[in-house]
Computed example of a mutant assay.
Amino acid sequence: MNAPRRRADATENRARILQAAREVIVNANEVRLNEIAKRAGVGQGTLYRHFPTREALLAEVYRKDVDDLVAAAPELLAEHEPLPALAGWLDRVAEYAKVKREVFAAVEAGVWQDLSAHSLGPIGEALTTLLDAGKAEGVIRPDVDARDIILLIGYLTRLEPAEWDARAHHLLRVILDGLRRHT
């Protein structure tokens, strides 16, 4: 009877660790594991049981952000027309890119390549879903594809932290305006 409780606690601890790590990645100048454990309300041992290395933790934060971003595409289409759904998804891209920039800056090249491989396919598929819906409604240009947009949004990882708030969402709106079909 105690085993299921521990599993639920372990799952909850893992989720809190990931959330705390994401907050630290986005808001701190340095990713410190003791700060992440403290924010998550767990001890160092619990953190290391779930994530034996700093890189493992950062990679999992990144993977979760990718998975959340991909899952958002059909959810947004279920709630909104294609163009507003794409706009909402691009807003999420800005937050994803902020985490991506910080994670990639903090991990080794080998882990970076693995994370890139994890994101490009699923994100391209999610973006294709949004673009296809907009094309079907005639609100998105027929001559663009997911790769075009992935190349354009790659700039987000180049923004300096001091200009993030002023530029990230604004530049995504410029891209969105360029995607609109003009009649």
Rank of each mutant, 00 (worst) to 15 (best):
P74E: 12
L58P: 00
L171A: 10
D132Y: 07
Y96L: 07
G45N: 06
D145A: 14
P52F: 00
L69A: 06
G138E: 02
S116W: 11
L57K: 00
K64L: 11
E79D: 14
R32T: 05
E12L: 09
A146R: 07
P74I: 14
R180N: 03
R7C: 06
K100Y: 13
A21Y: 08
E35Y: 03
A78F: 00
E95I: 01
L83G: 02
A97P: 08
A166L: 15
A20E: 15
H182G: 10
D132P: 01
L33V: 07
V139Y: 02
V42A: 06
A97R: 05
E75K: 13
L151M: 14
I123S: 11
R173V: 11
D114S: 12
T11W: 00
V93E: 13
L131V: 12
R49G: 02
A105K: 01
R14H: 03
L58Y: 01
T46Q: 01
A117R: 02
R173C: 07
F104Y: 11
P142Y: 13
T157E: 09
A133T: 14
N2M: 12
Y96K: 04
E75D: 12
Y48R: 05
K98R: 06
E30P: 00
P84D: 10
T128Y: 06
P52T: 01
H169C: 07
A59V: 06
A109G: 09
E137G: 08
T53H: 05
K100L: 15
L18Q: 04
Q44Y: 10
V144H: 03
P4Y: 05
E102D: 02
G154R: 05
Y155R: 03
E137P: 02
A133Y: 07
S119I: 06
K38A: 15
R39Y: 06
E75Q: 14
T11F: 06
R158E: 15
D68G: 04
A37H: 06
A15C: 03
A40N: 04
D68S: 12
P52G: 02
D165H: 14
K135T: 08
L90P: 03
N29T: 13
